[in-house]
C-alpha cells in the first residue's frame, strides 16, 4: 500500500513492519492454540496487532518483554470475546508448544494440561487448582516443571 494513501509516517510504517516480522508468526501460533479455525485466527491476528500497536505506539519495541506484553494483550482480547474460556479440550492440550511430538513424550499429561490452560487460556493458578482438585502450590510447581522441561529440550 502506497505511503501517499496511508496516513502513517514512513518511520511508523517501518516500525510496524519490523514488529510484524518479529511477532506476527509467534502470535498466530499462539492464537491458533486457542482458536482452531485458521480464518478466524487470522482475523484475530489483525485485530490484536492493530490494537496493540495503537495502545503502545510500539514504544517497548526493543524491550525484551514485548512478547510477554503482546501475549497478555492477546489473552485479554480473546477472553473478552469468550474465546479462551473454553474447556480443556484435546485440541488445546495437543497444542503443547515447541515440537509437539517431542513434547508429548516429554511432559506428563497433567503438565501438558496445566501448561496449555495457563499459556493459551490464561487460567489462574487458583482457578486451575479448584478445577483439577489440587493445591495451588502443586499447580505452580507442575507449571514450572513443564516450562523447565521445554527449556532444557531447547538447550539440548
Amino acid at each position: 500500500m502506497s505511503e501517499v494513501i496511508l496516513n502513517i509516517s514512513k518511520e511508523a510504517s517501518k516500525d510496524i513492519r519490523q514488529f510484524y516480522d518479529k511477532y506476527a508468526g509467534m502470535l498466530l501460533g499462539f492464537i491458533q492454540g486457542t482458536i482452531q479455525d485458521p480464518k478466524e485466527s487470522e482475523m484475530h491476528l489483525i485485530k490484536i496487532i492493530t490494537s496493540f500497536i495503537l495502545e503502545t505506539n510500539l514504544n517497548a519495541q526493543s524491550n525484551l518483554s514485548t512478547w510477554m506484553l503482546l501475549r497478555q494483550h492477546a489473552q485479554r482480547t480473546l477472553a473478552q470475546q469468550n474465546l479462551s474460556d473454553g474447556q480443556l479440550t484435546d485440541a488445546v492440550l495437543n497444542k503443547t508448544p515447541n515440537h509437539p511430538t517431542e513434547n508429548s513424550d516429554l511432559l506428563s499429561s497433567r503438565e501438558k494440561e496445566i501448561f496449555s490452560a495457563v499459556y493459551y487460556q490464561g487460567r489462574s493458578i487458583s482457578g486451575l487448582a479448584e478445577l483439577l482438585g489440587e493445591e495451588e502450590n502443586n499447580i505452580r510447581i507442575q507449571l514450572k516443571s513443564s516450562i523447565d522441561k521445554m527449556r532444557r529440550l531447547r538447550e539440548n
Binding site: N7, I16, M26
Partner: peptide, 25 residues
C-alpha cells in the same frame, strides 16, 4: 519463553500486514 513461541510460530498468509497497516491508518 520468546524462543519457545518462535518455535511454535505459524507463518501468516500474505496480505495480513497491509490489512494491519490499513486498519491502523
Amino acid at each position: 519463553m520468546e524462543v519457545l513461541a518462535q518455535n511454535m510460530a505459524i507463518l501468516p498468509p500474505p496480505g495480513i500486514l497491509s490489512k494491519i497497516e490499513h486498519e491502523v491508518n
